[in-house]
Design a protein around this nucleic acid. Structure first.
Lengths: 273, 273
DNA sequence: CGCGGGCATTAGTCAGACAATAAAAAAAGT
DNA sequence: ACTTTTTTTATTGTCTGACTAATGCCCGCG
């Protein structure tokens, strides 16, 4: 006995009103309505399990579900959300893979302690920046960047290949032309850092940095949307680039450190003005 | 039409011979044989989807499935493994959540490029150390530790609370008594580092370090099993502890750096003697 | 030679059943 | 009254088989 049509409380997971095979097995699904305008704000599009994992993940990070709390059971949850139990379970598996929930028979699925969350998982970081993250977390993140990225720049200066220098130069040129206001400009920014990371020749460091860079780049997009006036980042990048080009390890470290401090300041002004 | 009883090629996912409801619905499962000796080497115990994710994850990291390769389709795979499609799919979701595979209709599920794997995910790191990791990877990991952990020690020295000092002291005492040869000793080692990490007051750094520490501690267990003679790690830990106790940031950094260099040397000797 | 429409393949979703697990409650023993 | 054992029960785990949707590919058409 499920509630008549009760629409999900928060946001729609599906294109709107679409449901897969809601009755026996006959087609009976020819009402059109597929062109449902997916209205503006970053509506998750992909598969159902991904969309749900996204939504639950954000809810957990936001504190809507607190650590230690147990979610309603699978049957109840999935029927309330109007999706199948399999889809719901797959969403839970995704969250569990990121250390955010833990399931056991009889007990149910509970949100784990924050300590155990994989905060540096790229997706989790993305979810984090979906709502305004806490001042503390931003501080932690930039403190970590301040530890790793200057060291990365130093390594890159020592180990870079000529090809990698060219990649960085190309990205920098695009950044100069388009700015961070444009999508291609932000893309070039990512490319620049990506080439730098590759130049370190350290894949563990690369895995870490690329997660963080990607997350931080959300903030850049956010800043661009809100016309938050920031200083021009190109000169900072140029100094880092030049140091790496001339294999100046100490210089690269110093310039990168300065670049990150600037970025931190700008980000703080954006989120907590 | 499935093969008669053909046992899976590599290792059993299940306690042995057990199968859930292999026919219509009658019990028909009263053959005992539950006490199947789970022979020695780290046999994964938990749920089926977890066990399979584990196995596939290791296979991917080992290179049995290479990047870009596409796995056999779900029906085929699950029936070959003699598990249900749902369990198989949940395993795939876990792997996908860690960036190791990517699924799309028609194309199938393909192993992503190594660059996109979440190498610092605790589980992935665990899988990594299940088989002997490459020299290069170990080098990367310790290089990363050499960047982050001394910085962490420095922060801990500045920000530690008295309570945290006590926790570290207690753990250190246990390490002195039992050694790393025992389980409780290794546990104390982890506790020591955990307290240190908490003292940094940086949750991003904490998330990173705890993944790495846990992974590295597998190697400690490995070393203990193989009686690989290593120098006594207690004095190194003691020096770090004392520096943090007297709030000596520079000292803590230096001692931690030295500790990690030693650990790296020992690990290298163990894996590539 | 390009290009658009069907076709085939594969993951995605759904539904309902039963099994295993572990917590909680009840019963039995001391 | 307290502990131990058994039973109950709630929940996740697994299984099956079907249908849906997305998309790469091929073939015919311009």
């Amino acid at each position: 006995m499920r509630k008549p049509v009760a629409p999900p409380p928060t946001t729609e997971l599906r294109p709107t009103g679409t449901r897969l095979k809601m009755n026996g097995g006959r087609p009976l699904r020819t009402d059109g309505q597929h062109n449902a305008a997916i209205h503006g704000h970053s509506m998750y599009q992909g598969r159902l399990h991904g969309a749900l994992a996204h939504r639950l993940g954000v809810d957990i990070l936001k504190g809507t579900f607190k650590s230690g709390e147990i979610l309603p059971n699978e049957i109840e949850s999935s029927s309330k959300l109007d999706i199948s139990r399999s889809a719901y379970r797959e969403a839970i598996r995704i969250l569990a893979a990121k250390g955010m929930v833990e399931s056991r028979p009889k007990t149910g699925t509970r949100v784990t302690e924050r300590e155990r969350w994989n905060l540096l998982d790229p997706e989790v970081l993305g979810w984090m920046f979906e709502t305004e993250p806490s001042q503390d977390f931003i501080k932690s993140l930039f403190e970590l960047r301040l530890i790793t990225e200057p060291a990365a720049a130093e390594l890159a200066a020592t180990r870079r290949s000529d090809d990698q220098v060219e990649q960085m130069r190309a990205a920098l040129d695009i950044m100069k032309r388009d700015t961070l206001q444009t999508e291609t400009g932000r893309r070039a920014d990512l490319d620049f850092h990506h080439a730098l990371i590759q130049a370190t020749g350290n894949e563990a460091l690369a895995s870490l940095s690329s997660s963080i860079e990607a997350a931080v780049s959300w903030t850049t997009r956010y800043k661009a949307r809100h016309n938050a006036l920031t200083r021009d980042p190109v000169p900072d990048h140029e100094r880092v680039f030049e140091a790496i080009e001339r294999r100046d390890a100490g210089g690269a470290r110093w310039c990168m450190e300065s670049l990150i401090r600037m970025a931190h300041e700008d980000t703080q002004k954006t989120f907590h003005p």
